[in-house]
Simulated assay, not measured.
Amino acid sequence: MVSEKCLRKVILNSDVYTLCVQHALTTEKQEIMGLLVGEVDDIKCISKISACVTLHRSDKQPDRVEISPEQLCTASMYADQLSKKLDRPMRVLGWYHSHPHITVWPSHVDTRTQAVYQTMDPLFVGLIFSVFQNDSRSLNNLIQVTCFQAHQGASDLERTEVELVIQNSPFENYDLKGIADLPRILIQEEVECHDVKDNDTQDELANIHNDSFKTLALVHIVSKLSRPLCDDLEERLKTVNQRIRTLENLKKELQKR
């Protein structure tokens, strides 16, 4: 039974949005997922998401993802650490996952999963990022996002769209940590996946073959994710330094006046 209490609006930090999209674009063969952290106004039913936790996938599937209780506990501990650091009540507010090559709309499995989370927290929300979808008119890659909750319909569970606002905000240290953690988590997934395969065989040629594919996977992460992220952060640093210089000049002018 899904609670009648539901969200009215979700305000998503622009840096968190960027991190979620970058995470979704890391693979077009499996779904990825993570948890959303922030503050919630229980009276107005408005959530403000300002951080996210990238989850380690122990099982890669092209059509579904799941959150283990251990991962939910880890995200809750991270939210508690942020609460103490920022002196604000932070908690796990929702989850996000990707839909590579398919529409952004939640499947029946997504809706049932969302309903289960809402039994623990009626304001828990789900975000879905549709990636690697081609626009036949512009021939460009489309990226779409939807924000939803679940409610009990006349005969079955139904999804309810929630207003989503992407808001510019200062670049925080925990956003930087999330960006830096993403390549590390993906590398850890690949190493563990290939190590399991290596343990299944004693054939030397098979081990060499598996090592070659592991190397290719790691090179792909570095070339397609780590290097672009570094380039993006360098450009962001230049922009921030330029803004600092502008503000310092403005401060000097105001002091003269």
Rank of each mutant, 00 (worst) to 15 (best):
P62A: 04
D63T: 15
D63G: 11
V65F: 02
V65N: 00
E66C: 03
I67W: 00
S68E: 07
S68C: 06
S68V: 13
E70F: 09
E70H: 07
E70D: 13
Q71N: 04
Q71R: 03
Q71G: 01
L72K: 04
L72T: 00
C73H: 11
T74R: 03
T74G: 02
T74K: 06
T74N: 05
A75R: 04
A75G: 00
A75L: 07
A75D: 02
S76P: 01
S76G: 01
M77F: 08
M77S: 08
M77A: 12
M77V: 13
M77P: 05
Y78S: 00
Y78G: 05
Y78K: 09
A79T: 05
A79N: 05
A79W: 04
D80T: 11
D80S: 11
D80Q: 14
Q81A: 11
Q81V: 08
Q81G: 00
S83D: 08
K84M: 11
K84G: 10
K84E: 14
K84W: 09
K85Q: 14
K85A: 13
L86Y: 12
L86N: 12
D87L: 11
D87T: 07
D87K: 15
D87V: 06
D87M: 12
R88F: 04
R88Y: 08
R88N: 04
R88S: 10
P89N: 12
P89C: 08
M90R: 06
L93K: 05
L93P: 02
L93M: 07
L93N: 04
G94K: 12
G94M: 11
G94R: 09
W95D: 00
Y96K: 08
Y96S: 09
Y96I: 15
